[in-house]
């Protein structure tokens, strides 16, 4: 397919640093290939800005293939832009038309402060993970082969699906409540479903939920927006499982 070129207007959030007051700025960008990815388009814009001796736009990215979860951009009112099941780096300019105006904003969440322009600090997710998102393994040197513990196929599949979460934060960004419950639900589920995770299950869910609240994330009201915008198709079932785990742990925990 022959590539097409389009001219677009961009409205992009600029903010010098975490303390500064930011604002939406307008940029014109011509001759954008519809074959380029969204991030390549931003690269092109940054080259233009550098040539004009202006400060390039800071945005996060790493793998550019949908696995690292860094490319956190809110595009035209949707996390990772106007498509489902993808990250921003997997979004292509063929989704846009000549003459389009495209809004690009950082994730908006009290728990994800803006560091600069479109870059936010998602270390809140790390702290939630550290609060319980692990299994303790004995490293005596006589570790049992994981495959010797039988796991029902459906549980293994569901744990694997939950583990597909890349921690991108799109769920928080899109949720009207800024809730991280899809992320935490996935992280709780991926262990809760497996025998190795059962030992610490109660403390895990209680600690991770406590950390989630401390970080200032909102609470789920089941609008279902996260599930639709999640690039990895993490299911709402994981939130229900976390609620279930939390309720039973809160009622029966003896620590």
């Amino acid at each position: 397919m022959a590539s097409k070129f389009i001219n677009i207007t961009l409205k992009i959030w600029r903010q010098k640093n975490s303390q500064a007051k930011g604002s939406m700025e307008t940029y014109k960008l011509d001759h954008v290939s519809t074959d380029s990815s969204f991030l390549e388009m931003l690269d092109q814009l940054n080259e233009q800005l550098i040539n004009e001796r202006k400060e390039p736009i800071a945005f996060d990215h790493d793998c550019r293939e949908g696995i690292c979860g860094m490319c956190s951009l809110y595009i035209n009112g949707r996390a990772h832009g106007p498509d489902t099941g993808i990250t921003t780096c997997q979004l292509h300019m063929r989704m846009f038309k000549d003459g389009d105006t495209i809004y690009v904003e950082p994730w908006r969440s009290a728990a994800f402060p803006v560091i600069k322009d479109l870059v936010v600090d998602r270390s809140a997710f790390d702290r939630i993970q550290q609060a319980g998102g692990f299994v303790s393994v004995n490293t005596s040197g006589r570790t049992i082969d994981a495959n010797s513990i039988p796991v029902p196929k459906t549980d293994a599949d569901k744990a694997f699906e939950a583990a597909a979460c890349i921690g991108c934060g799109a769920c928080v960004a899109t949720c009207k409540n800024g809730s991280a419950m899809l992320f935490v639900g996935a992280k709780v589920s991926q262990y809760a479903l497996l025998p190795q995770g059962k030992v610490e299950a109660k403390n895990r869910v209680l600690n991770m939920v406590r950390q989630m609240d401390e970080e200032g994330f909102g609470n789920c009201t089941n609008t279902g927006a996260c599930e639709i915008e999640c690039p990895k198709g993490i299911s709402l079932e994981n939130i229900a499982r976390m609620n279930r785990e939390f309720l039973t742990a809160a009622l029966s925990n003896e620590d």
Binding site: T174, G216, T221
Partner: peptide
């Protein structure tokens, strides 16, 4: 509490793309 979780609103938001009106 949920309003506090997003102190800065989006300049452009399209929540209709992923959630029902009553739920919001």
């Amino acid at each position: 509490k949920n309003k506090k979780a997003r102190p800065v609103p989006y300049a452009y938001n399209n929540p209709g793309a992923n959630s029902s009106m009553p739920s919001r």
